[in-house]
């Protein structure tokens, strides 16, 4: 057996990381890999589109019920993908970060990953690295590569930059390194260029640009990934390409995050440019420098 590949996918809330992760899992399963997807978000809906929208009992629900029997937390989804949800507290109480730590520790202690022996494990982790708990998958011995999902929205890049800070913190103690950036909801050239520029400035690379697509939304509303609901679409091809690159890539980076002031001034320049392009596109207005349609 080849060495198991464990990766973690981070991104700001609502940016499309669970969508990307689930489609990636299916694409890898299509390639013949045995995949386990672990949702690390208190909402517990990372793997829903792999199981027609159905929720599953979470690791932390099991712990809360007083049981130490984790045999019922792994559920098979589409294409045999092993679905696990860490779970977490209700909104407004407790500590979600501690939940991630406990859930990952429990999965290890109980030998769940060993037991199912997947070829690829993908952690789908909420947002910013807001505390030690959400940085857990970055630390030594959990994931080996991190991918950041981001749109060209400034706050999303801001979150990616924070993630990079988290990676730098653990880089020297055997923590995970950055595999690359996945640009999501990218339809315009300028958006691509902005993310490209961000990756250049932070010493990283962009793995794939995933366009915004109605197909994705439609399939999700049906409780399916794009690869299941619309396997022949252009969008599905993009996810397959992404999966291939990730599984084949051995490149890892210690990113060079920007300091906040640098990031703000860089962002402000790019947002002006994107707004300019939007004006041209929607209103046919050109500024004195020309360009446009």
């Amino acid at each position: 057996m080849t060495k198991r590949k464990e990766i973690a996918i981070y991104g700001k809330g609502g940016i499309g990381k669970s969508t990307t992760t689930s489609n990636l899992s299916v694409a890898l399963a299509e390639m013949g890999y045995k995949v386990m997807q672990i949702g690390c978000d208190p909402k517990s809906d990372s793997t829903n589109t792999l199981r027609r929208g159905r929720f599953i009992p979470t690791v932390l629900d099991t712990l809360r019920s007083g049981s130490s029997d984790l045999s019922k937390i792994v559920h098979e989804g589409y294409k045999g993908i092993l679905c696990v949800e860490a779970g977490g507290p209700e909104p407004g109480v407790g500590c979600a970060g501690r939940g991630i730590i406990t859930a990952i520790e429990l999965l290890n202690q109980k030998g769940i990953i060993e037991e199912y022996s997947p070829d690829v494990v993908i952690y789908d982790v909420l947002g910013d690295v807001v505390c030690g708990g959400f940085a857990m998958p970055i630390r030594q011995g959990v994931a080996e590569q991190i991918y950041a999902v981001t749109s060209s929205d400034f706050m999303s890049l801001y979150a990616a930059n924070n993630l990079f800070k988290g990676i730098v913190k653990y880089a020297n103690s055997g923590g995970a390194l950055l595999g690359g950036i996945i640009g999501n909801s990218i339809n315009k050239t300028a958006q691509q260029e902005m993310i490209n520029d961000f990756s250049r400035k932070t010493g990283t690379q962009v793995v794939e640009y995933v366009p915004r697509s109605q197909t994705v939304t439609k399939c999700e509303l049906d409780g399916m990934t794009t690869l299941e609901g619309s396997p022949k679409s252009k969008q599905a091809a993009v996810y397959r390409s992404l999966a291939k690159k990730i599984i084949e890539s051995g490149n890892s980076f210690v990113p060079k995050p920007l300091d906040p002031e640098e990031l703000w001034s860089w962002g402000s320049t790019w947002v002006s440019r994107l707004l300019g392009e939007q004006k041209v596109a929607y209103e046919g207005i050109q500024d004195s420098k020309g360009g446009g349609i």
């Binding site: 507290p89 209700e90 109480v93 407790g94 500590c95 979600a96 939940g99 406990t102």
Partner: peptide, 8 residues
Amino acid sequence: EADTIHGG
């Protein structure tokens, strides 16, 4: 531990 996560 569970109370710490889910609130007590």
